[in-house]
């Protein structure tokens, strides 16, 4: 595993796997080679394990990347190794190791789509792993952090059956195939139109910003912390952590439209923009109508566009089954 622009949250999440336990995985299930958080060795001795795997087992190992790809200053905002007197950048190492890997798995939303590291205004110009490895498919296991089952499930699928079926953003369908909303236990509240007005209430949290309808993950059935609970289960809205564009497109977490960034670093709420536009139009129409009335334009237009005939028609009902005919002796005016 290579860690680039990351908070190591996915490693911490992964440590919490139950069952199999993490020690089980390391000792019995996988040949876990290189991982900053778990290495017993350090420095060049540890790094050598990665280089050996790269040169001795080409197309046999799985590269796991945690963290976003940092592009600013040709990647020099993010150094991940020291090799022959040179600092190696995250993007260089991921590209080098990734091109010879059997599979590349990006875990966490940062590695998958850029995540919080790529948040506005993104000074490090961060992206997901797929952007630095355009020539091959990267399997995304997004989430902030990714659920331990999603990580382990994907790795085991790769080891036992090969590549799992992926959905539109390269995520395994078995975990990200359905929206939170479709499996949410509060869905019947939503369907009935019964909404919580504050966080902490037991109804559907849509009105307080739940991103369940736009978020693909299986949290409602898998739940977190050894299946104990999950956000909606403890009355806070889903914040859409598995989706591309998180967190910018999902924030503020308590309303469901994202704020619009303005030059200069401020943001403006979508609903305020809408109200502003509608207010402006209403004011313009009312102002224009008043001015038109004052100037006599409306009166003039109405007179001009309605015309009185030289004589009026008068209609007479000639038969009971609704046939009408113009009176022969229509009065001339």
């Amino acid at each position: 595993m290579i860690e680039t622009g990351t908070c190591t949250g996915d490693s911490i999440s992964f440590d919490n796997i139950w069952t199999p336990t993490f020690s089980d995985i390391l000792s019995n299930i996988l040949d876990w080679r290189y991982d900053w958080s778990m290495n017993q060795a350090q420095g060049s001795a540890a790094y050598q394990v990665l280089l050996d795997t790269y040169s001795k087992l080409p197309n046999e190992y799985i590269l796991i990347v945690q963290g976003s790809m940092i592009h600013s200053d040709s990647g020099h905002y993010d150094h991940v190794a020291y090799e022959q007197g040179k600092l190696i950048t995250g993007i260089d190492l991921v590209r080098r190791i990734g091109l010879k890997a059997k599979y590349v798995v990006a875990i966490g939303s940062c590695a998958a789509f850029g995540g919080p590291v790529a948040g506005y205004p993104n000074p490090t110009r961060s992206t997901g792993v797929q952007d630095v490895l355009p020539e091959r498919r990267v399997i995304n296991v997004s989430g902030c952090p990714a659920h331990p089952d999603w990580i382990m499930g994907t790795l085991l699928h790769l080891a036992l059956y090969g590549e799992p079926e992926l959905e539109k953003y390269g995520r395994p369908k078995m975990f990200y195939g359905e929206t939170i909303h479709n499996r949410c236990p509060r869905r019947y509240y939503y369907d009935q139109g019964i909404f919580a007005t504050d966080i902490g209430q037991k109804e559907c949290l849509y009105r307080v910003g739940c991103k369940g309808p736009v978020t693909y993950a299986d949290c409602p059935i898998r739940r977190w912390n050894d299946r104990l609970n999950w956000p909606i289960g403890c009355n806070t809205p889903c914040i859409g952590c598995t989706e591309p564009g998180y967190p910018d497109l999902m924030s503020p977490f308590t309303v469901h439209s994202p704020d619009i960034p303005l030059p200069g670093g401020t943001k403006i709420a979508t609903d305020s923009v809408a109200l502003g536009v509608l207010g402006f139009t209403s004011a313009a129409i009312i102002g224009h109508a008043a001015a038109s009335l004052y100037k006599g334009r409306i009166q003039r237009n109405l007179l001009k566009s309605t015309v009185r005939g030289k004589h009026r028609f008068s209609l007479t009902k000639v038969k009971t089954f609704h046939t009408y005919r113009v009176k022969k002796n229509a009065k001339k005016e």
């Binding site: 736009v214 989706e243 979508t270």
Partner: peptide, 9 residues
Amino acid sequence: VGGFQRLRW
């Protein structure tokens, strides 16, 4: 468009 949320927006 870059995801469901942006589509909604």
